[in-house]
Each structure stands twice: as structure tokens, then as C-alpha cells.
């Protein structure tokens, strides 16, 4: 695909440890093999831990992973004042004009975390079964308003006493038809479905 300076921007948010970075790690090979030119912006509080993790794995070319240090309040830089992330995305597009897609990973936050549509075109919220099967019932803005809800670490469900089928049913009931995908990012389960959903929504092509 050739870029036109309007790379799609997709947010990935969710609680600490739910698997946001793991989802990106699993998505990148699929996107690359589909010819989708991608870059990533990570948000951490006061470090660049997630960016360094992605860089170490060499999943993208040099300079295509950048870190934004969000400070004390991770949702501020993706919602109330997303200018740091907008500037980082603009800089990536200037440096790599062929980009098709920029993934913006939020710092770990709570269920109230949402993305400004001034920053992203579409956004994913990642929760995991180990966080408890009551999360969808809590109706957090992140689980309700996101364009795609991902329930990760599905294989842990029996080990943490979670009824995954019920969790999925309750999640779907709160989202008024918006999609929910169950994944296990470590094994790759469900990740291609996430990539396809993302690609169809903002790149207008099937994967």
C-alpha cells in the first residue's frame, strides 16, 4: 500500500497488565505480512519500557517505535490533552510518508479510560480474564465506548475461576452490537480476527 500522509491512527487502551503490548507484538507480524506499513507510539508513565520491549524484538524498522512519557495521568494524554501523542504521530508521518497505520498504545489505566477522536480514528480496549469476569458488568466507558473490545488471556480462564462464555455474553450485552473478540495473544488465538477487524474499519480492506 502506498501512504498518502493520512495514515490511520488506532488506539489500544486498557488496564495495566491486560496485554496491550502483547497484542501489538502479535499484530505486527500479521500487518507486516499483509503489506501494511505500520509504526507504534507507546505511552508509559515516566519510562519507555513498552517501546524498548517492542524495539528489542525488532518487529518494525528503525525509528518506527517511539515512546511518549505520559506523566502521572495516562488518560490525560489520550483524551483531555492528546497533543503530545498527536505531535508524535505527525512526526512519524513526516519521517515515514508511506505509513498506512499508526498504533497508539495507552499507558495502563482503569476502565474509565477512553481515546479522543482528535487523536485516533478507531480504538481498541483490552481487558483480560485474570482481571475478573465482572469487568464487563461494571460498564466502564472503556469497555462500552471502544470500537472493539478484546478479552485477552482466554486460556487462563479455568485457572482463575472465570466463566469465559458468560463474560463474553455479558460484554456483548453492554456494547449494543459493537464487536468483542476473545484472544490469547501469547498463542495467537483471535489475533488475526483483531487484525482483520482493524484493517476493515480504517484501512477499508480485508486482511
Amino acid at each position: 500500500m502506498s501512504g498518502n500522509g493520512t495514515a490511520a491512527r488506532v488506539g489500544i487502551g486498557g488496564p495495566v497488565g491486560s496485554g496491550k503490548t502483547a497484542l501489538i507484538e502479535a499484530l505486527l507480524p500479521l500487518l507486516t505480512s499483509a503489506g501494511i506499513e505500520t509504526a507504534v507510539i507507546t505511552n508509559d508513565l515516566v519510562t519507555r519500557e513498552d517501546a524498548d520491549r517492542l524495539i528489542r524484538q525488532n518487529l518494525l524498522g528503525e525509528g518506527r517505535v517511539v515512546a511518549v512519557e505520559a506523566g502521572a495521568c495516562p488518560h490525560t494524554v489520550i483524551r483531555e490533552d492528546p497533543t503530545l501523542n498527536m505531535a508524535a504521530a505527525d512526526a512519524l508521518e513526516d519521517r515515514f510518508p508511506d505509513l498506512d497505520l499508526i498504533l497508539l498504545e495507552s499507558g495502563g489505566d482503569n476502565l474509565a479510560s477512553t481515546f479522543s477522536l482528535d487523536l485516533v480514528d478507531w480504538w481498541i480496549f483490552v481487558i483480560d480474564v485474570a482481571g475478573g469476569d465482572d469487568i464487563p458488568r461494571k460498564r466502564g466507558p472503556g469497555t462500552i465506548q471502544s470500537d472493539l473490545l478484546v478479552i485477552n488471556k482466554s486460556t487462563l480462564a479455568p485457572h482463575v475461576g472465570v466463566d469465559l462464555d458468560r463474560m463474553l455474553t455479558e460484554a456483548e450485552a453492554t456494547r449494543q452490537g459493537q464487536p468483542v473478540i476473545v484472544t490469547d495473544c501469547r498463542s495467537g488465538q483471535g489475533v488475526r480476527e483483531v487484525a482483520g477487524c482493524l484493517s476493515q474499519a480504517v484501512l477499508f480492506r480485508s486482511l
Binding site: T6, A8, R9, S116, L117, D118, D121, W122, A201, V202, F204
Partner: peptide, 10 residues
Amino acid sequence: ETDLGRRRFQ
């Protein structure tokens, strides 16, 4: 109204 900020959508 809530979708006006989007630049890419169908």
C-alpha cells in the same frame, strides 16, 4: 455528533 472527530470511517 460523537463521530465527527473521526478522519477514517465507513
